Amino acid sequence: MKRIKPRSSGCAALIVLASVGASLQVGETMAASSEPSVASSAAPASSSRSANRALRKRVYAAFAKDKSIEAGDIGVSATDGAVTLTGTVADAAQIEKAGALASSAAGVQSVKNKLTVRRPFGQ
């Protein structure tokens, strides 16, 4: 490749970068047109995401109804009816209680309970 010596404050370098960028955009456009369209599969993914989000909200609502659970440090993820609980709780009894509450929410098919007991600072 030929070296270009800029005569002024980098104008030639900007021109070279612009031409390289333009050639990359052309190559990307050609590559994108040869790939199959995925727009048809976007609708099911969107409905699945909203169903998972609704399931998470139902599990959090079940936690909110039971005042013995401190759900502030509990994370809930849902995928097609499978719920995973992560985070920490104050004592071991809350681990079992949170699992039972999560499984009682409408639409929950299985619960993976990864909760742990919160340890005091410094231990």
Rank of each mutant, 00 (worst) to 15 (best):
A43V: 15
A43M: 11
P44T: 05
P44K: 03
P44A: 05
S46R: 08
S46Y: 12
S46L: 13
S47R: 10
S48T: 13
S48W: 08
S48C: 09
R49Y: 12
R49P: 00
A51E: 07
R53E: 10
A54Y: 03
A54H: 10
L55S: 05
Y60N: 15
Y60D: 08
A62Q: 10
A64Q: 14
D66Y: 03
K67F: 05
K67I: 07
K67V: 14
I69H: 01
E70S: 07
A71Q: 11
I74C: 04
I74D: 00
G75L: 12
G75I: 08
V76Q: 02
S77C: 04
S77L: 11
S77I: 14
A78S: 15
A78Q: 02
A78V: 02
T79S: 15
T79E: 14
A82R: 11
T84D: 04
L85A: 02
L85Q: 02
T88R: 15
V89A: 01
V89H: 04
D91C: 07
A92G: 06
A93D: 06
A93L: 14
E96H: 11
E96P: 00
E96W: 09
K97Y: 05
K97M: 09
K97E: 07
K97T: 04
A98Y: 00
A100T: 06
A100M: 11
L101P: 00
A102K: 01
A102L: 03
A102W: 02
